[in-house]
Simulated assay, not measured.
Amino acid sequence: MQQGIKIGTRGSPLALAQANDVKAKLIAAHADLGDGDVEIVVIKTTGDRILDRHLMNAGGKGLFTKEIEDALTAGSIDCAVHSSKDMPTRLPEGLVLSTFLKREDARDVFMSAKYASFSDLPAGATLGTASLRRRAMALRVRPDLKVVTFRGNVQTRMKKLAAGEADGTFLALAGLNRLGMSDAATEILSLADFLPAPAQGAVTVEIREDDTAMAACLAPLHCDETALAVTAEREFLAALDGSCRTPIAAYATRSGNSLMMHAMLLSLDGKTVFDKTGTCAATLEAAATLGQDMGAAIRGDAGEAFFETLATDIEAEIE
């Protein structure tokens, strides 16, 4: 068994919780690994430094992974732990997502220091979020709300709420669960009303493609069911955009020998929604094809003019 394993991660409390979970699972899976054999290496990313504006102004999803992936490519770490929804659909050459842990609850939660539910927000209330998906989902049912950019880790956003910077915000339930903070959720939102981001709630481990020893070490941690769902969702994302510049939602679930996915593309204001469901056999190849086909179908329904208008709307919003 490989000794002296170095796990790369961001330094937020949630990222550290996820990395330490991977460490604990590795030690539990291999009798010859002890606590001193697995080291957590914290790497600060560009995305961690940008807290006052949309990531789109600075480069998108890759801002949370570049420095970590550079360290992985250079060999200074052996693997990297990420939230799957933060991963670009195209990885640097020579790197792969080898492992997906069992998926946590993928639902969003509404958080507020003033109101008991999202529907309780008064007309004109301020909603804080940097997610275009959450913005569009909220505005499609509550077009009266004022949306402002709200970034930072879980603790930072909760402090902003307490300080009155917004009347409410959204977080992923998976993150609260991993931090032992699920009781802080004001309201858990239904999947029917707030379809999650592709791969939300799934932790992945990235390695060098040629590192067969690390792949074998991680193999006991891998969840086939999560890999199926995330493959379909990420392929759907890739077919439409592949970054954080588009309000896209997708959620796939396995039932027996079948995989079903519900997916959406929205305009920034939530007034236009393209919504599809699809099913396929529960294999990785079929899951990838399902995501690609559903993405192509929705792209065809929307038309290129929709994407041109969306890009213009987003540029105007984030300036």
Rank of each mutant, 00 (worst) to 15 (best):
A252V: 06
A288W: 00
T289P: 00
L266P: 06
A287R: 06
R299A: 10
T277M: 09
P247G: 11
E235C: 15
T277G: 09
F274E: 13
M261T: 00
G242Y: 14
A287I: 08
G300M: 04
S255K: 08
A263T: 10
Q292V: 04
S243A: 13
A286T: 05
M260L: 08
T253Q: 07
A229F: 03
L284F: 11
T279P: 00
A281V: 01
A282H: 00
F274H: 09
T231N: 15
G303C: 09
A239F: 14
T246R: 08
G270A: 05
E304P: 12
D301W: 02
M260K: 12
K276F: 05
S267P: 07
H222R: 15
V230F: 02
G242T: 09
S255T: 11
Q292T: 09
A288N: 03
L237M: 15
C280P: 01
A249V: 08
L259Q: 00
P247E: 10
K276R: 15
A297M: 00
L240F: 13
A302L: 07
S255F: 05
K271I: 14
E304D: 15
A238P: 10
C280V: 00
L240D: 13
T277S: 14
E235I: 11
G270N: 07
D275H: 06
L240P: 11
L268V: 15
F274I: 12
E235H: 15
N257G: 06
A288M: 03
G256T: 01
H262D: 07
T283R: 12
F274M: 12
E304A: 14
R245H: 10
M294C: 01
V273G: 08
S267Q: 11
M260D: 05
Y251V: 01
E285V: 06
T231K: 14
D224M: 05
D275A: 04
D269C: 13
T277F: 10
G303Q: 11
I248S: 13
T279S: 08
C223V: 05
A302R: 04
R299W: 04
R245V: 12
T272K: 12
P247W: 06
F274S: 10
G242S: 10
C280H: 00
S267D: 13
I298M: 04
M261R: 02
L265H: 05
L265R: 07
A250P: 07
A282Q: 01
D293M: 01
